[in-house]
Computed example of a mutant assay.
Amino acid sequence: MTARASWACAVAACAAVASAPPALAADSACRGTIYLTFDTGSQSQAELIAATLLRHQVKATFFLANEKTTRGDWSLDPSWAAFWKARVAEGHAFGSHTFDHVYYKGDADAGALRVKPQFGAQAGQSLRWTPAQYCSEIARVDQRFRQLTGRALDPIWRAPGGKISARSIAAGKACGYQHFGWAPAGFSGDETASEVVSNATLLKQSLANLRDGDIFLAHMGIWSRKDPWAPANLDPLIVGLKQKHLCFATLREHPDFPKAP
């Protein structure tokens, strides 16, 4: 081979290397999926959560109830319309958390359910609802969300406190809503007292235990936790999970998401 030929081969080889995808790209491929979900709460961390997700280009799923906020209003008031419209534009998913944050307390006779709303006109009362009444409470969020954003909820819901039964799940399905809870490793711990469990401990547990397919739960603000979870933990959680080659998706991509008829 002539010197000129050798030089040409070297140039071709370099060009091939330069055009090939870097080794890191192959190594950074997704090795699993985590579904980040957020329930409404005091809304004290709502803007921070939204900004963090946007910065990392992560899509999440929000479960909405009409809860009292630190601004002195309610999370589904018209004053929150711009916030929810912006999240719709960013491509997040949305489900019902029951309008008045209604806790399921047990099954009653004749196919009814025992419930206790946390907010609304019947807050704190122990009530007996038919499955149709329970279904209507789930759907109330969709009605308000359409008014605020012009968009329907996704056909999913989450029971406050995760309290469910076969009867309550069936009530939701009767009006077109699939229930989604969360994985044991997916509980952020943001409802625990920060004096008892630090943010550093909660972050370490999440990064160590979350696995492919897990649904993660946090809130958009918890009244009782003195050292809020999101400012300290959300950013490093996302970074840490990405470093473990875990990717993020909304519950629209979950295998249990209702299929279109």
Rank of each mutant, 00 (worst) to 15 (best):
W84M: 02
W84V: 01
A86N: 05
A86I: 02
R87Y: 02
R87V: 01
R87I: 00
R87T: 02
V88A: 05
V88H: 04
A89P: 04
A89T: 04
E90A: 14
E90G: 05
H92I: 10
H92N: 09
H92K: 08
F94C: 03
F94K: 00
G95D: 09
G95R: 00
G95W: 01
S96K: 01
S96W: 02
S96C: 03
S96G: 08
H97S: 06
H97F: 01
T98M: 08
T98Q: 06
F99S: 02
F99H: 07
F99Y: 15
F99D: 00
D100Q: 06
H101Y: 04
H101W: 08
H101G: 06
V102N: 04
V102D: 03
V102F: 01
Y103S: 12
Y103A: 14
Y104A: 08
Y104Q: 09
Y104M: 06
Y104S: 02
K105G: 02
K105P: 02
G106F: 06
G106D: 08
D107I: 10
D107W: 01
A108V: 02
A108D: 14
A110C: 09
G111Q: 12
L113C: 13
L113T: 13
L113M: 15
R114M: 11
R114S: 04
K116H: 11
P117A: 12
P117H: 10
Q118Y: 14
Q118H: 12
A121V: 14
Q122M: 12
Q122L: 15
A123L: 13
Q125F: 01
Q125V: 01
Q125Y: 03
S126P: 02
L127F: 10
L127T: 00
L127C: 06
R128A: 13
W129A: 14
T130N: 11
T130G: 08
T130L: 14
A132T: 13
A132Y: 10
A132K: 15
Q133M: 14
Q133V: 12
Y134A: 06
S136H: 14
E137S: 13
E137I: 05
E137H: 07
I138H: 01
I138Q: 01
I138F: 08
I138R: 00
A139Y: 04
R140M: 14
V141P: 00
V141I: 05
D142R: 10
Q143T: 15
Q143W: 05
Q143R: 15
R144W: 08
R146K: 13
R146C: 09
Q147Y: 04
L148M: 08
T149C: 10
T149P: 09
G150V: 06
R151V: 08
R151I: 08
R151M: 09
R151F: 05
L153F: 04
L153Y: 06
D154S: 08
D154F: 06
P155W: 08
P155M: 10
I156Q: 00
W157T: 01
W157H: 04
R158T: 07
A159I: 04
A159V: 03
A159M: 06
